[in-house]
Amino acid sequence: MYDAVHMKRLLWFIIGLALGVGLALFIGWQVLPVQRANSSPALLRRDYQEEYLRLTAAAYQVDGDLARAQQRLAELPPDSLVKVTERWIAQGKSDAILIPLAQLARDLGVSTPGMQPYLQRGAP
């Protein structure tokens, strides 16, 4: 008799616990997720990542801070700069976009043959 009462209470406790955990997961991940704005550039959508690259190159044109540009690029997947620049060269993007990217790549020591015309056109 005593064991049956305890078992029943334990069952209710487990049901309560399960309901509580389930409710908390719903609240914590869906309704009120903590720090919504906590992503890094690597988690940006692909088009925004590419925009981030463009911005890094354009900002470098103005501030000339290579170390800062390198820090910014480190937030993206490796070789993003070269891969995106090469792809955009193949797509025939404008000089205004490609020259800053090629110059940044060159200053980081990673220029490719495809970037050479843009480096020449961007030379002062």
């Binding site: 209470r9 487990i14 309560g16 399960a18 609240i27 914590g28 903590v34 988690l43």
Partner: peptide, 28 residues
């Protein structure tokens, strides 16, 4: 007993979702 279980479960679940494993967003 059910209420106690519910409260404990809620506390443990929120600790997990808010502190231990907050959501990460992709394609942001």
């Amino acid at each position: 007993v059910l209420i106690v279980g519910l409260i404990l479960g809620l506390a443990a679940g929120l600790l997990y979702t808010w502190v231990i494993s907050p959501p990460e967003y992709y394609d942001t």
